[in-house]
Design a protein around this nucleic acid. Structure first.
Length: 559
RNA sequence: UCCCCGAUGGUGUAAUGGUAACACACCGGUUUUUGGUGCCGUUAUUCCAGGUUCGAGUCCUGGUCGGGGAACCA
């Protein structure tokens, strides 16, 4: 009745094809107008940015239409799954900003029901126990374009199948000795419809059901039925399951259960990134990165540690859209999403990464002033703070050069610059070591140029960040670059060959504003003129904070 | 060989038979006590061939190219 209510919600983003389908379903009264989605991770690894897109799609669409989303762990293969992954997944999803009303679903909760479904199939003559080996079954499968051949066990009676399936369940069959197969069509053009295996024997302890079961359902026999049991209306998944949809529907029809509907969309790919759990695991195992949450990893935990905000990831997911064509998103869009978010929220502070001495010769030696610094020019409510200024300062080595052209706005012989929130200073001279590295720069300041009460009339082109030497705190800073030097790391053979050897640069002896010694985990900072940074909770030690660079500032300087 | 899906600027996404648009990237200008932000602007797009139609990115046919498809994985 409220067909205009969704229109009243302002939403500049164009509707994607799934949204359009849902709208059509609602207006046609399908599923009683309900929208109920699910996110079904297998707890066998950490979630990555690709999963974040899937989460935003399934949770986001349900939320948009006033529906619900079930978090369901698809735990039908106990060999690969564990509680550790369950917990990590829950943490990542709730950090992303989605909740599941305290209800957690597990496919393993339906093992009994699924077993009964299998029995029902047997009694309808639609499933049979096959005694052949995996190799024999594979050999009979045929090939695309060539039909397979029927198993000799395909004609067993329902009674015999029931008895044998019961024995499988009772643990009287060895692993690999027998499987239960759906009886569909060995000549079907879709290979998945050629009598797929639906139950196999595994004498493996399950992280939730323990030793209760020795037979476990295959994905195709578990997923659609679980959707159906939960009365999921829109089961959204990635393109790789398109070929599974006929099977998904076949089981629902054969079992005559709630008709959940599967719709597929393209998964996220990012350039300069790999997105496969198996390959990410290899990076961890071979020590290329320090763990799943290494700030260079595209995992949600890695992005979090890197300093990505949940908001920026949600915005990114919205920006990339949902469609069926394979895509490769430019990482710059992810980076833009972060900058756009943090520009509004991050606290501006000053930090000098590669410090050299800056001495203000005409500033009294014993004098110290507190300067008023704006915390965030994008947000007046963020207020101001006081920072100490004195005769001896630290400045960025990169901000001084001896030989310069007219495009150089920073300090150099003969040049004048503004020290942010402080005074305008003029070059006097500089000192070098034996290797010719500049170690110290001497300047004079203009006393009437104090920030906020400048009457000097001097308009320097450049503004430099700085830290007062006396009160500066020591910090370590980690600069990250993309993990791979190739846009498509997997394109030319082994992705390990495409690794960027300079993806991590550790800077020690950095000088930061006093307030940063009290930096809290999860606070977003902008180090003025340098980029966005956040405290690394793993490497920081009392008295020696470690900051991760989340993303640099956009650098418009072409010099 | 067969089946399924897809093809719109550099990268993505819209346009649902009626002016091909938006974002990011790029380039240029402007503002600026961050070479950031903001603001303004430039460049650049419908895979090919037929057909239907007054009119096709959209519908039909054929082709080309790309992705997926045989696990007791999900």
């Amino acid at each position: 009745m409220s067909d205009t209510s969704s229109e009243s919600v302002p939403d500049a983003r164009p509707a994607n094809f799934i949204e359009q389908k849902i709208k059509a379903d609602i207006s046609s009264g399908k599923h009683g107008g309900r929208v109920h989605t699910r996110f079904p991770p297998e707890p066998n690894g950490y979630l990555h940015i690709g999963h974040a897109k899937a989460i935003c799609v399934s949770f986001g669409l349900a939320k948009q239409f006033g529906g619900k989303t079930n978090l369901r762990f698809d735990d039908t293969n106990p060999e690969k799954e564990s509680l550790e992954y369950v917990n990590a997944i829950k943490k990542d999803i709730s950090w992303l900003g989605f909740d599941w009303d305290g209800d957690e679903f597990y496919t393993s909760d339906y093992f009994e029901q699924l077993y009964n479904y299998a029995c029902k199939l047997i009694s309808k003559g639609l499933a049979y126990v096959d005694d052949q080996t995996a190799e024999q079954i594979a050999a009979q499968k045929g090939a695309p374009g060539t039909p397979g051949v029927n198993s000799a066990y395909r004609t067993r009676s329902a009674e015999e199948n029931q008895k044998l399936f019961g024995e499988m369940k009772a643990g009287r069959c060895k692993e690999g000795e027998r499987v239960l197969r759906a009886k569909i069509d060995m000549g079907h053009v879709n290979m998945l419809m050629r009598d797929p295996v639906i139950y196999r024997v595994k004498f493996v302890n399950h992280h939730r059901t323990g030793e209760d079961w020795v037979i476990y359902p295959m994905y195709d026999f578990a997923h659609g039925q679980s959707d159906s049991i939960e009365r999921i209306t829109h089961s959204l998944c990635s393109l790789e399951f398109e070929n599974h949809r006929p099977l998904y529907n076949w089981f629902i029809r054969a079992l005559d259960i709630y008709p959940s509907e599967q719709t597929e969309f393209a998964r996220l790919n990012l350039n300069y990134t790999i997105m496969s759990k198996r390959k990410l695991l290899r990076l961890v195992e071979e020590g290329v990165v320090d763990d799943w949450d290494d700030p260079r990893m595209p995992t949600i935990s890695g992005l979090r540690r890197r300093g990505y905000s949940a908001e920026s990831i949600r915005v990114f997911s919205n920006l990339i859209g949902v469609a069926k064509r394979n895509n490769t998103i430019d990482v710059s869009l992810l980076e833009w999403s972060l900058r756009d978010d943090l520009n509004r929220r991050a606290l501006r502070v000053m930090a000098v990464l590669n410090p050299i001495r800056l001495v203000v010769l005409n500033y009294p030696e014993e004098k110290m002033e507190m300067m008023k610094a704006v915390n965030n020019p994008e947000d007046e409510a963020a207020g101001t703070r006081e920072i100490p200024f004195g005769r001896e300062l630290w400045m960025e080595a990169d901000d001084f050069r001896v030989d310069v052209n007219k495009k150089w706005f920073r300090l150099a012989p003969g040049r004048t610059v503004r020290l942010k929130f402080a005074y305008i200073v003029q070059y006097v001279n500089h000192l070098q070591d034996e290797q010719g590295n500049v170690t110290e720069v001497h300047v004079n300041y203009l006393p009437n140029s104090r920030s906020g009460q400048d009457t000097s009339g001097v308009k320097p082109k450049g503004t430099l960040h700085w830290v007062a030497a006396d009160s500066a705190k020591e910090a370590e800073v980690r600069l990250y670059d993309r993990l791979f030097k190739e846009a498509a790391p997997e394109a030319k053979g082994d992705f390990m060959d495409a690794l960027n050897p300079n993806s991590l640069k550790i800077l020690q002896g950095c000088k930061v504003e006093p307030c940063l010694s009290k930096a809290a985990e999860g606070t977003y900072f902008q180090f003025t003129r340098l980029g966005y940074f956040t405290l690394d909770p793993k490497h920081s030690k009392p008295g020696l904070p470690v900051f991760n660079r989340s993303v640099s500032l956009k650098d418009g300087w072409k010099g």
